[in-house]
Design a protein around this nucleic acid. Structure first.
Lengths: 117, 117
DNA sequence: TGCACGTGCTAACTTCTGTTGGCATGTGCT
DNA sequence: AGCACATGCCAACAGAAGTTAGCACGTGCA
């Protein structure tokens, strides 16, 4: 989740996760200000159910992380915060990542093995 | 298409475009080696129709560019090559981009404009 | 003429994703 | 008890995206 070359699949996942206005806003809202689900949903003006889905995707991609906490009045609240990450997208970086993509399904011919850097 | 802060919508488009194994491979195949559609399709092992769709997306996102050329034997061939681009993905960059996202759909109420920060 | 090779397009199917709404759980306070 | 607020999950729909197959057009060459 750093600047080191990500695998193709990781890259695809991160990009797919970030390629969504809602999730971009979620990340933006979380920068420098951790928050819990319900409140975040209110601030962003979207439903909790929807936000949860997006948060889950972000978390799965490793872009945000969550931890459950108990507020003073005993309520369980799930706080989210953004992780530090840096992804640099250039043709070369993509070319490198593409070589580590898992094979769609088929051939993977023989003379091919030296694949992994 | 450079390192300068992209708008939210641009970012979303680029990320969505790159968030696909096939398109990653296409970009990879095009790095340092321009190619024409039919040949590229053969090399990648995918159908021309499919490749065309992906190439179009890549082109729309500004990641590759095409120009029609006539081969020596008079055949019209469409050559593609990758554009130079650099996108740096960090929480902060995303936060900045998110602010320039076009409104999802509805209200865009009046007192809303100075919204952020 | 017929084949090989290049281009482009579109209709149709399948699969994935986003989104909503409802219902369940739990707590503290009046 | 009833309300407000927190969490979680799931079924269902709508729409977007990926993919295939087939057709059109063009050229050069045996």
């Amino acid at each position: 989740m750093n600047d080191a070359a990500p695998t193709g699949d990781e890259l695809v996942q991160v990009l797919a996760t970030l390629a969504n206005p809602h999730r971009l806003r979620v990340v933006a809202a979380l920068v420098g200000e951790r928050n819990y689900v319900s409140r975040l949903a209110r601030e962003l003006g979207i439903s909790r159910a929807l936000l949860q889905v997006h948060l889950r995707k972000l978390e799965t991609a490793g872009l945000v992380s969550a931890h459950l906490e108990l507020s003073e009045d005993g309520k369980a609240m799930k706080f989210y915060e953004v992780n530090r990450f840096v992804f640099t997208l250039t043709p070369e970086a993509i070319a490198a990542a593409a070589q580590t993509l898992t094979i769609p399904d088929a051939v993977q011919r023989d003379g091919e093995e030296g694949s992994r850097s």
